[in-house]
Amino acid sequence: MVDTPVGDLLLDGLWLMGIGLGVVFSFLLILVAILVLMSRAVARWGPAEPLAQSLTATAPVPGADPVPGAGHARVIAAITAAIHAYRRRHAA
């Protein structure tokens, strides 16, 4: 095995390493910046509803009512009515 071609290859490899790591780092650093900006923008202008939902609901139901507030109110109303009906029947 001649030494020079391997030396050339190693130089190519070093070059590739420099460029490659540079690109990977700059790509991910730009992504960091974009994510920070995105989170700030969402916090400022985004709807307040999804955050509240993720805090309160431990397991969001897929395909649930698109307006969770209204849906919850209706569900609560239904449950309350059922409890009332049950108590009235059993108290009598």
């Binding site: 790591l21 991910l28 992504l31 994510l35």
Partner: peptide
């Protein structure tokens, strides 16, 4: 998001191995 930097650093293994293979 800053944890992305850790994901970048671990890719050093790829490029070090490139030199190793050569």
């Amino acid at each position: 998001p800053s944890t992305l930097v850790l994901g970048a650093a671990a890719q050093f293994g790829i490029f070090a191995t490139l030199l190793g293979a050569l």
